[in-house]
Each structure stands twice: as structure tokens, then as C-alpha cells.
Design a protein around this nucleic acid. Structure first.
Length: 689
DNA sequence: GTAGGGTTAG
């Protein structure tokens, strides 16, 4: 209810805001226009500085996923009161809320109350900042607010989330009569820490006491944070959910959807999702991000399209997840479409969304567009920098990556271990050996990180590519034991293959066959190496061994988009309607290519171990088909973009270089590990991939 | 006009 002292127009305004908010349940972004109009009226009527009106609008904008607008409303109030501060704190996330709390205490004009602490503590809990949490706890003790039921519950949750379940339990046991919410907090605390037995026990206590579990109780019980090893419990819980009549409850089914996604059981996840008659924003987001994180990118995009078709407006989180799917898919036209939706729906461009956009443009081949967005971004965080640095690495622009890394340090940002991975990767793919060594050293000695598997793999790759095989081999012995595995030996083997060192290759393979007997790739590499050294019987032996293990090679395929339509080609594919035209064009093209100096390289055929040799001579790799199709169906001068699921082979790499020359086209190829930009007979990777 | 427990992101 509006406050009694407020003049009638303001009271009416607050009523309108309330009505708008109630109608917006589920986060209806299209309502933000009405919200803005109403807010405009309020400002025009002179209420911009009124704490009651500001509080209502702050909350309204937050409901509409417009954190930026909510903050602006707050900033327009010269002397915010306690309630307005509290509203802001509830809107802000994580570190922002904690910073704002510090500002509030420093400003001293409005006294924090129990509501204030109940808003700040969850923020500290979310980032598991136990130090900050303890400070707030001490502050509460000093002000006599620490006995408040809401505050105690928030503290229970905080300590539990920070891993101190014993402290949480002590607080719980000290409560005179813990209510349902306090139970829920501790149940969730145990669950988050994987102490599923204790959380189930507490749940039983609660039922015995005659408290009625709510959807929040069940959500707390669902072990989304430690799903593995709890498949049995998951089934029991699901059965209980049905029995207790929560089988259409959105929060509960959303949590189950999430849990199944984490268990990689996508069919069950989808069933839980479909069982919700009324889906919330969270339900859609859980399913879409679940698909995206499990690599089911087409399904993620399809679900987003369904959401669009049903006129359910997305929020920033939906967009981030969908963009992540587009990035993995490499589908630029889809990514651009999502980009347009952001403007159409007038969604908040928060740091997640912009970073996801940059990542999408990078992975869909538009490094220039990615950089444009990055430069215009004024709220960059470490992840934004990491994404851009790794983008340059992916596109083989090592020097640019290093320059950006330096800018990042100059901007006083602390690099994370992902930053170093991006830098090392960029050095490796750019042939920057000394720079890579320096970065690796500073990572451990200056920044105190323990190198992970990925970092070590990158270093072996870096030295190995540069032909410093012995150094690479010696470096392995300096790595932490936890990092020495198939990744590191695989990198060494690949380098041995490039530089044709059969002895070291044999050593690396031996390790690999022990570590990963199921992986075909290593057999392929070794066999290929023997062949290139004309050690045919050794090569045959390795291939025989691979065959006897019935190892299956992932079939290669290439995607190309013409207009908005994707076309996928497999090796030797004749399924495409334009197949005849493609093959005859390819024949003509090959003649021209040979005139320009192209020599077909059949060594590449030996990659396909499990196939009959003669088949390879006939088969055409999928990237050649896709390029020919692209050339046939686009105007001269248009650039061609293709995406291959495996790494591009040597022959196709050579062929593409020549094609870019004889046709005068820019050809951008995304393979399994990086981008190649072919222009006028030269590839951006410098034949160094 | 505000708050404690739960699900979603780069």
C-alpha cells in the first residue's frame, strides 16, 4: 500500500506500478515500455527524488530484468532512506550488493536494519565470500540485529554455502523454534556440500514435526550441486514429487530439469520440462542452458525458437545461453538473428550478454565484429578479456592476443588461470615460443597458479610445434603429476608427427595406448608417421591393432550457410540436390588448381584407418564439397565460411589455399581447433596448425 | 515502497 502521507497522484502512481508488476510475473520484457512511460510521468510530476516512488520503480525494473534502469532510478534520489537502499540491495547481484552495502554504511545517512542484512548476506553467500559474511555478521551483533529470524536464516545459508556446515548447524540449533524456511536453508546447505544423508534426515525431522514441505523444501533437497552418485536419490525424489502433488510445480520441476541436465540425462530433463503446464523464465533458461552446456546446440536453438514462436520474451540469461549455443554451432546467421532480438526486445546489455555476443562473433568467424563490440564495452570484466584474448588465439593472431593481454594488465585486472590458457594457446598457434615460455613462468612464479592439464598441454604443443621436441619432453617431467595425462602425451605425439621423430613418437604412443586404449586418434597419428617415413609394415601393424579394437572414427562433416540456410556435407556425400553440379564443378576447379601448382596429397587418406584404402582415393573430403557448393551459390568476391567438425587435413589445407588464389575469394574455415583465413594462396595459420 | 530458504548465464 502507498504511504498515507503521499499526495494522491503519487499514491495512484504506486498503485499503477503495483498493477504493472503483478501483470509481469514471469518477466515480460515487452512491459518495459509501459514501465518507462509510467516512470517518465513520475519524473515529470516531480517524483524523481521521492523514496517511495523510487523504491517502487526500482523493484519494477528489477522484475523486468532491467538492473541498469533500476540503478538509475536509485541514483536519481539525493537522500535514499533505509527501504530504498534495501530495495537496491535486493536488485543488485553478488559483489555489487556488497559494495553498495559498504557505501550505505559509509554514507551513514540511512541506518541498516534487519532487512538490509537479509539482502546482503545472500549476496556474500552466492560468491562464498565467508570473510565478507563474517564482517556483516559482526556488524549485526554490534547493532543488535543478529537475532532476527530472517538474519539468522540468511547466516545459516551463508555459512553452509561457504562449506562451514557445523557453524550453520550451531546457529540452527540455537533457534528457539526453527521455522520451515530455516529448515530449508540448512537442508539446502547440506545438499550443496554433498551431505545428502544429513539433508534427507533433516527433511524427515521436519515432516515428523508436522511442518508441511513446500516447493522450496523440495528444491533444496534436489542435489543439483553434487548430482553424481545420487542417481538413486534422484529417482526417489522424483517419485516423492509426484506423490506429494508437486508434479506440475514449476520451481520443483525446474530444479529436476537442472539436475537431469547435470547428469547428462537429457531425455529425463526434457520430460520434466515438458511436464510443466506453466513454465517460468527459469524453466526455459534451465532447459536451454542445459542443452547448450551438453553440446546439444541445435536443440538449444530450437527451444529458443519455440519460445519466440510462443511469444515468451527472453531475458538476458536466455540470450546468453542461446548465444553460447550459436557460438558452438558456428552459425553466424543464427547468432546475428539473436543479436537483433536483443535490440528488438530492448534487453539489458549486461556484461554476460555482451561477453556472450563477443564469444559468438569470435567462434562464428567474425573477429573484427567481436573486437568492435569489445571496444565499445564499458563494463568489461576478466571473462570479457579472456574471451577476446582467446579469440585472437583461435584466429591465429598471437601478437594481437599478447597486446591485449598487456592492455588487460595495464587496466589493473588480475589474470585468471583461463587468461593464461588463452595466452598460451595464442602463443602456440602463433609460433611465439619465447613469449609463451615467459607467460608460463610468470603464471606460476608471479601469480602463484598451479598449471593445469590444459596449460601443460599447451606448453608441449608450443615447444613441439616449433620443433623443440626434446625440450618439450624434458618439460613434461617438470609438470605437476596431476597434469601429466593423455593430453600432454597426445600433444607430444602430434608434434613428433609434424617433425617426423619416430622414436619419441613411439614412446609417447606407448603412454597413450595405456592411458586411453579406446582413442583412435593416436593410432591414426602413429600410423601416419610410419607411412610418411616409408615404414609401411609398422604402419600396417598399428592400423591392424586399431581395427582389432573395432575403434570407430568420427565421420568428418562440414557446414556452410548460404543466406540463412545451413547445408551439411559428409565425405563423399552425394545426398545434396546439387550434388552433380558440385562434383563437375570440383573437377573443373581441380584442373585449374593443378595448373596453379596444386599437387593432390594422398597421405591424408591414411587418417581414415578403419576404411578400405581404395575408398579414400574415391572419396572427397567434406570441406572440398562445401567450398565448391559455396563457390557455386554465391556472387564472385563473397567470402566463404565453413565449419568442419574435425581438424582440416593437410591436403584440404593445401587445396583451400590454392582455391582462394584461383577464385580470388576469402575462405574462412573453422576446424575443431581453430580458424584458418585463406586469402590469395596463403593461410593465416602460416601452415602452422 | 524493502528482506531470510530454491532453479538459470559469459
Amino acid at each position: 500500500m502507498p504511504s498515507p502521507g503521499l499526495p494522491p497522484p503519487a499514491a495512484a502512481l504506486l498503485a499503477d506500478v503495483g498493477a504493472l508488476r503483478r501483470s509481469s510475473r514471469g518477466g515480460v520484457a515487452s512491459l518495459s515500455a509501459s514501465a518507462r512511460a509510467l516512470h517518465g510521468l513520475a519524473v515529470a510530476a516531480g517524483y524523481a527524488g521521492d523514496t517511495f516512488v523510487a523504491s517502487a520503480f526500482t523493484k519494477l525494473y528489477s522484475t523486468l530484468s532491467r538492473g541498469d534502469d533500476a540503478r538509475k532510478v536509485f541514483d536519481a534520489v539525493p537522500s535514499p532512506d533505509t527501504v530504498l537502499w534495501n530495495t537496491l540491495l535486493a536488485v543488485l547481484s553478488r559483489s555489487e550488493a556488497m559494495e553498495a552495502f559498504v557505501r550505505m554504511v559509509r554514507a551513514g545517512s540511512a541506518q541498516p536494519d534487519s532487512t538490509t542484512l537479509s539482502s546482503v548476506l545472500p549476496a556474500a553467500a552466492e560468491v562464498a565470500d565467508v570473510t565478507m559474511g563474517r564482517c556483516v555478521h559482526a556488524f549485526g551483533e554490534k547493532c543488535g540485529l543478529a537475532q532476527d529470524e530472517h538474519v539468522v536464516t540468511a547466516l545459516i545459508s551463508l555459512y553452509a554455502k561457504c562449506g562451514d556446515t557445523e557453524c550453520a548447524r550451531r546457529l540452527f540449533d540455537r533457534m528457539v523454534v526453527p521455522d520451515l524456511v530455516a529448515y530449508n536453508a540448512l537442508i539446502s546447505g547440506y545438499s550443496v556440500n554433498g551431505m545428502v544423508g544429513l539433508s534427507v534426515e533433516l527433511f524427515k525431522d521436519l515432516v515428523t514435526l508436522g511442518l508441511r514441505p513446500t516447493s522450496s523444501t523440495l528444491v533444496a533437497l534436489i542435489p543439483v550441486h553434487s548430482p553424481f552418485g545420487h542417481e538413486q536419490l534422484t529417482r526417489c525424489l522424483h517419485a516423492y514429487v509426484v506423490k506429494a502433488g508437486f508434479d506440475a510445480n514449476a520451481p520443483v520441476l525446474t530444479a529436476l530439469t537442472t539436475l537431469y541436465c547435470r547428469l547428462n540425462d537429457m531425455d529425463s530433463a526434457r520430460k520434466a520440462f515438458d511436464a510443466m503446464p506453466e513454465k517460468t523464465m527459469e524453466s526455459w533458461n534451465a532447459m536451454i542452458s542445459g542443452y547448450a552446456q551438453n553440446g546439444l546446440t541445435e536443440k538449444a536453438v530450437a527451444l529458443f525458437q519455440k519460445m519466440q514462436a510462443l511469444n515468451v520474451p527472453p531475458n538476458p540469461l536466455t540470450i546468453s545461453s542461446t548465444l553460447s549455443a550459436c557460438a558452438q554451432l558456428g552459425a553466424l546467421s543464427l547468432g546475428k538473428w539473436v543479436h537483433k532480438i536483443i535490440s528488438k526486445e530492448n534487453l539489458e546489455l549486461n556484461v554476460y550478454v555482451i561477453t556472450a555476443l563477443i564469444d559468438m562473433y569470435v567462434k562464428c568467424g567474425s573477429i573484427v565484429e567481436a573486437r568492435r563490440i569489445f571496444d565499445r564495452m564499458d563494463n568489461k570484466n576478466v571473462v570479457s578479456w579472456n574471451v577476446m584474448i582467446s579469440g585472437y588465439g583461435l584466429h591465429g593472431q598471437g601478437a594481437e592476443a599478447l597486446k591485449l593481454y598487456k592492455d588487460m594488465l595495464d587496466a589493473n585486472l588480475l589474470p585468471t588461470s583461463s587468461t593464461f590458457l588463452s595466452v598460451l594457446y595464442a602463443c602456440s598457434h602463433g609460433g611465439l615460443v619465447e613469449e609463451g615460455r615467459t607467460a608460463f613462468r610468470s603464471m606460476t612464479s608471479h601469480y602463484g597458479f598451479t598449471p593445469g592439464i590444459e596449460h601443460c598441454t599447451c606448453m608441449v604443443d608450443l615447444l613441439g610445434r616449433a620443433g623443440r621436441l626434446k625440450e618439450a619432453y624434458e618439460l613434461i617431467s617438470e609438470f605437476p603429476k596431476s597434469a601429466i595425462g593423455p593430453g600432454v602425451w597426445g600433444a607430444l605425439l602430434a608434434a613428433c608427427m609434424v617433425h617426423k621423430d619416430a622414436d619419441l613418437a613411439k614412446l609417447a604412443s606407448q603412454k597413450l595406448f595405456e592411458l586411453e586404449p579406446e582413442n583412435t586418434g593416436y593410432y591414426v597419428l602413429l600410423s601416419n608417421l610410419y607411412t610418411s617415413k616409408k615404414q609401411y609394415s609398422e604402419a600396417a601393424g598399428v592400423r591392424q591393432e586399431a581395427k582389432s579394437k573395432k575403434l570407430v572414427k568420427t565421420p568428418g562433416c562440414t557446414l556452410i550457410e548460404i543466406g540463412d540456410k545451413p547445408h551439411v556435407f559428409m565425405a563423399g556425400d552425394r545426398a545434396h540436390p546439387q550434388s552433380d553440379a558440385i562434383y563437375s564443378y570440383l573437377e573443373k576447379l581441380t584442373t585449374k588448381m593443378i595448373e596453379a601448382g596444386y599437387r593432390p596429397d594422398t597421405e591424408a587418406a591414411l587418417y581414415d584407418v578403419e576404411e578400405e584404402e581404395k575408398e579414400h582415393m574415391v572419396k572427397v573430403h567434406s570441406e572440398k564439397l562445401a567450398i565448391a557448393f559455396g563457390l557455386l551459390n554465391t556472387e564472385p568476391g563473397t567470402e566463404i565460411r565453413i565449419i568442419k567438425n574435425l581438424r582440416v587435413c593437410l591436403d584440404c589445407h593445401n587445396a583451400t589455399k590454392i582455391i582462394s588464389k584461383v577464385t580470388q575469394r576469402l575462405i574462412v574455415v573453422r576446424d575443431a581447433s581453430r580458424f584458418h583465413h585463406f586469402r590469395d594462396g596463403v593461410c593465416s595459420c602460416g601452415d602452422y596448425w
